[in-house]
């Protein structure tokens, strides 16, 4: 193992997650949805990798594979240099305490019948850490995410959306994890609250040395929080680059379209921008196009795009794009 590798907290090697489509009484397998189709990337310690893409592109599935909520069809998930892709639930126990998860829906991700204290302390209880320091730890977690410990006995519906998301973050931090998978943590929140949560996540990362996988569909939010950004389309990563680089020099035609579709809150700039409106819609992941998945919507596609799958190639500085025309 080289020095380079040892600093990777997570490394995905050719990860594949196929969901079977079954049909009829005998649950005959009639096809499969290639939700994640040969994805590789790594996240270094203390780094934030952003994962963007539209709904159904497999970004959430990728996150859940790393959390081992799914057992991947193929490929390796290296967590601190150990492959966790084939582990069973017993072997995963210690891994689970060093990973945290924050979910999109601050209403659905907290059990409505538990108090805030129980919700936040739950990971500690599960991992046998309900010892002497438990009450102090829960109080400390409350303060860490900017909540008043006097609200500990409240149940989720007595909190506002932003406060609930803070509870979710506190729960993810309870066992002092190294890696946190943030799955659309701000998209369900009000605009004025999003910035509070983004700032909180950024502060916590600096304070606690956390590593984030930040999954979201909003490219401007992802670029703001991430060091590097990976763009997914129909189960594959089509471009990965430094945040700034991706914005200034997008290479893949899909990334370009995605960037131009994001509205900018400034009418003067907006009226001048040329907007590449993509034709058609995202094809079904059960029946993806052959070759490059983006070829039916691409305006620079040629013959080989329809037959061959472009691999990610490095164009320098760690900027990689999967397009023949680059």
């Amino acid at each position: 193992m080289t020095q380079e590798n040892s600093t990777n907290v997570v490394e995905l090697l050719n990860l594949k997650m196929y969901f079977p489509i079954t049909h009829g009484l005998l649950r005959r397998r009639v096809g499969e949805i290639k939700a994640v189709d040969d994805v590789s990337f790594s996240i270094k310690k203390n780094e934030t990798l952003g994962l963007v893409g539209e709904s159904g592109c497999g970004k959430t599935t990728t996150g859940r594979c790393i959390l081992r909520l799914y057992k991947p069809t193929a490929g390796k998930i290296m967590f601190n240099s150990t492959d966790i892709s084939g582990m069973n639930e017993n072997q995963l126990r210690s891994v689970r305490s060093s990973m945290g998860a924050i979910f999109q829906d601050p209403y659905g991700s907290l059990n409505p019948r538990q108090t805030a204290r129980t919700i936040i302390g739950m990971p500690l209880i599960i991992h046998g850490m309900k010892t002497k320091g438990y009450d102090n730890r829960v109080e400390e977690l409350f303060k860490l995410v900017g909540l008043d410990p006097s609200m500990m006995t409240r149940v989720p519906h007595e909190f506002s959306g932003g406060q609930r998301q803070r509870l979710g973050i506190a729960r993810a931090l309870a066992c002092q994890p190294e890696l946190i998978i943030c799955d659309e943590p701000v998209s369900a929140l009000d605009v004025s609250i999003q910035a509070q949560i983004i700032n909180l996540l950024e502060e916590l990362q600096e304070k606690l040395g956390l590593t984030y996988l930040f999954i979201a569909h909003d490219l401007s939010v992802v670029q703001h929080i991430s060091n590097r950004v990976a763009v997914m389309y129909l189960g594959r990563i089509i471009e990965i680059a430094n945040s700034k680089e991706l914005y200034q020099n997008p290479l893949h035609p899909y990334t370009k379209a995605l960037l131009s579709a994001i509205p900018v809150p400034n009418p003067v700039i907006e009226r001048k921008r040329t907007r590449t409106v993509l034709k058609g819609e995202v094809p079904s992941p059960a029946d993806p196009p052959t070759g490059c998945h983006f070829n039916p919507r691409c305006n620079i596609a040629t013959g080989d795009c329809k037959t061959e799958r472009p691999q990610l190639k490095d164009v320098g500085n760690g900027h990689m794009a999967a397009c023949f025309r680059v």
Binding site: S160, G162, Q163, D190, V191, S192, I193, Q194, A195, Q196, I198, N199, E202, L219, S220, V221, Q223, H224, I225, S243, K244, Y247, Q248, L259, I262, V264, P265
Partner: peptide
């Protein structure tokens, strides 16, 4: 506040920290 608290496209955290509107709706 609304205009200041959303990240601008292409803006990274090193360039500008977001300025949230304090408190709750």
């Amino acid at each position: 506040g609304l205009l200041k608290c959303v990240p601008q496209l292409g803006e990274t955290r090193q360039e500008r920290k977001l300025v949230p509107i304090k408190g709750l709706p």
